[in-house]
Design a protein around this nucleic acid. Sequence first.
RNA 1: GGCUGCGUAGCUCAACUGGAUAGAGCACUUGACUACGAAUCAAGAGGUUUCAGGUUCGAAUCCUGACGCGGUCACCA
Length: 615
Amino acid sequence: MIQQLPEKLTSGARAGLESLYGIDAAGQDITLQSTRKEFVGEFTIVTFPLTRLARKKPEEIGTELGKYLQRELPEVSDFNVIKGFLNLVISHEYWIEFLLDAAADEAYGTAEKNGERVVVEFSSPNTNKPLHLGHVRNILLGWSTSQLLSAAGFDVKKVQIINDRGIAICKSMLAWQRFGGGETPKSTGTKPDHFVGKYYVKFEQHFQEEYKQWQRSDTAATVLANNPKQLSPEDFWKGYKNKYFNTYSELGSAAKDMLLKWEDGDAETVALWNKMNGWVYEGFDETYRRLGVSFDKLYYESQTYLLGKDMVEKGLEKGAFYRKEDGSVFADLSDANLDQKAILRSDGTSLYITQDLGTARLRYDDFGATRMVYTVADEQNYHFQVLFELLKRLEEPYADGLFHLSYGMVDLPTGRMKSREGTVVDADDLMDEVIQEAYQSSLEREATSELSEEERREIIRKVGMAALKFQIIKVGPQKRMTFDPKESVDLQGQTGPYVQNAYVRTRAVWRKAGERDLTAAANYSGLEPTERELISQLYAYPALLRDAAAQYDPSVVAMYCYELAKNLHKFWHDVSILNADTEAAVAFRLSLCRTVGNVLKSGMGILGIEMPERM
RNA sequence: GGCUGCGUAGCUCAACUGGAUAGAGCACUUGACUACGAAUCAAGAGGUUUCAGGUUCGAAUCCUGACGCGGUCACCA
């Protein structure tokens, strides 16, 4: 279905301006917005900006333009003017026809395939510890954005780059080797990624212990005495930790040795590395499965970390980069307000940014995508500015389609999550918690009592996950958010289950209605305000999806679903459906329920939230 | 300190990108189940949109400055 009302109204308004005032309005912006719900009408034209052109008061323009539109456009049945606002009422017939069309269209709202391919990266964890709340926001955001782009017509490929190498995983490996005593996830009954994470923590504990002991040594005393800023020992040692790790620490050098061995391809080390990463992936897979997300392709840093040198060469040839005397390669981005940036070390080895250049190219070669979206927290804003600028200077074919889906970090009510202070909220625990809460809540209800135990468990899972997901996705991506676990288990108010409940109601009434002949719906007359509200909201859905996709912002969809659900609940309360006065009203309202249900399911589906048939 | 983002009800968030009396939810107070499902609805209370200027018919939104809170400034990732 083509959305044309806004275009018709604005072009009609332009024609009106020409006919009424002889203004050449071809290039004139017409401010069209949806009418606020305290006023009558569905669309509003703001006439303030037109006063200069027409040389009349805003009210007069509103009235004259209103009359013109009512006369010229069959879709406009009435209007009213309040100050500089011309509120247009859309005709009953138009709405009914629209609704019946939409009710018959299963895919209502989603766009035709546009043939353009986009790669969306999200999650991209390290393999040394389990996923936590921060990853959850990343994953939900990346996933829902993928779905959104897909609904907007793109051919989406979902990828992640797994940071499977480096010092972090070596710490876990070393700790397990030294302190593990041969235990395994199976032997301890631990989820495998948590098992590996436990050894990462264990490494840190032993390291801290070692560090404390060392601080009492003579060497340490000398270091402390030479402390240039005269800090207190406590503060000094805090900042010295990395230096200690790299120079004096036995555990530190053992971990670094392990990394070197890994880089040399030492068979034993690589086997250990494979074993522990394998455990982590097993655990991640389960978490991803529970979150309901999947990927089209996984990139592993161990296979990409040497990439990018050909890009460096290309940059040198193009004159975009330059080589210093010591052999290092830099790009001068100062004209883009981004400074000098190192691209290659003087020993010729890659940097993080080098690797990202190579990976971008690799993805292009793999998928031929003209757009790439990176779902990464806003602490890396600068990095992506640099990366995108470099790719632009390399004149890569996808350079204009790069987007950093930057999002704010997740805080707890107690402040920032800190692994060292044990305040990190684990993803698996969090899911358990919300599902448990949904279970408690379901005990008070009868609605699902005749279902089997298994069906009820499935509903409870959907409800709990909806609460968690909606809570996170409804916040705009750029915004740093405070996540209160107590609120995430709320099932009432502005929540996922609230929206689910609206859907369930639309399904319940249909179950009761059975098979029906709905042809009478076309004869319905006398739209209630709550029905008009629902219809114009449904009408806005396709454009809303398009805009949300253009902005890479799934929170827009979440808010829309909430508003639609809210109006459905109000409608439900205000009017009778099956007991309506006329057969036409029954048929019409059933159609309305069907379409609202479809759109709710579609919108929430984009967010990765499943709709139960009962709850 | 340079660059950058943010600051809206007690709390968590909106505000169609410059439009109407700044809206929701939670929490608080009150009312509605003999109704197609009350995980619902309705009502009340809650605001100098951090502050001070400016731009204009009109500012939470744009500009300048101040204050406050993040992030980032490696031949780390």
